[in-house]
Amino acid sequence: MDEAAAKKVIVETLQGKKGKSKFYLKDFYAMVPDGKPREVKNLVNKMVEEGILEYWSSGSTTLIGLKGVGKQAGAEHED
């Protein structure tokens, strides 16, 4: 999968998830099965830099989701 295709898959997969807006890095590995963890990690971080995704952090763990999607409350299991 090339980079553009991988990005597309990631965005579409996230858009398709209902009721959940934030994901572990590991969930992204599954979306791009032919990429090595390190490559997927680099791609995800790049997508954050490009403003497509954003980080959410509890301080100890980091979750990642589409920018602006899901309320802050998502973290508190209210949505």
Partner: peptide
């Protein structure tokens, strides 16, 4: 509350 979406540009850590 638990965590949040804050940070400085380009960084995914260092701010809680």
């Amino acid at each position: 509350k638990h965590g949040g979406i804050v940070g400085v540009f380009g960084y995914g850590g260092g701010v809680i």
